[in-house]
């Protein structure tokens, strides 16, 4: 069995274990079945911590691959790409609700912090691309130094959506859909050209025409 398959197999065992036991395994041995020994999985990193990383990362990677397969995806606006990302993402995690409830329970604070970090690299890469694309097609306004914080702002939304989804009791989790729609519109309206640019423009003009301006040019 290839390393990836073994890792996936063990990750599934971990999900099953958490759903059943509602707590973390004390060691990776707890995940073994029948005559299996630690050696069976020697070729993969079988530390539960690493398995969590693998699972969380794969949600993002699989979401992105579903989007790439969509023939309309390339033509979408940045706003639509972000919306599509979240709708596909919540669809990817829906089978693992019980597992994620354990991972994101307040008792597992350390683990939660860890898995959040595990999702970061592929998600941040996606977000960075989105921001760049938005700046080029002018859906997102380039505001010089502020550009650096755009990705950080958008990055937080993933955990907001995930936590809201876990608590969402509405039928078909329709409230999460509503949240995604609102959240993405809010972010895109804030990052796109808006009244803040006019405000900054006026501020800059006032400053340039004030007595202070002579000190500024020195």
């Amino acid at each position: 069995m290839k390393k990836k398959e073994l890792q996936a197999k063990l990750a599934n065992r971990l999900k099953e274990y958490l759903e059943k036991e509602k707590q973390l395994p004390k060691s990776s041995k707890d995940l073994l079945k029948g005559k299996e020994t630690g050696k069976t999985y020697a070729s993969v990193e079988s530390e539960p911590k690493r398995l969590f990383e693998h699972i969380m990362e794969s949600y993002i990677i699989e979401t992105l691959s579903v989007l790439e397969e969509d023939e309309n995806y390339a033509e979408m606006s940045v706003r639509e790409k972000l919306l599509s990302f979240y709708f596909v993402f919540v669809n990817q995690i829906k089978e693992d609700e019980e597992f994620l409830k354990v991972v994101f329970s307040p008792r597992q604070f350390q683990l939660m912090k860890h898995v959040k970090n595990a999702m970061r690299p592929p998600f941040v890469e996606f977000i960075d691309q989105i921001v760049q694309e938005g700046i080029i097609n002018e859906e997102i306004k380039s505001r010089m130094a502020l550009d650096k914080v755009y990705s950080m702002t958008l990055e937080k939304d993933l955990i907001i959506v995930l936590k809201f989804w876990l608590k969402d009791q509405s039928e078909d989790k329709a409230k999460t859909d509503e949240l995604i729609e609102r959240l993405v519109h809010l972010e895109m309206n804030a990052l796109g050209p808006n009244f803040m640019d006019d405000l900054l423009g006026i501020g800059k003009m006032m400053l340039e025409n004030s007595p202070m301006s002579k000190y500024m040019s020195r």
């Binding site: 706003r79 639509e80 919306l83 599509s84 669809n91 859909d177 729609e181 993405v184």
Partner: peptide
């Protein structure tokens, strides 16, 4: 948005 419409129909 269209992504939401698509998601609602799919779901």
């Amino acid at each position: 948005s269209y992504p939401l419409v698509k998601n609602t129909v799919f779901k």
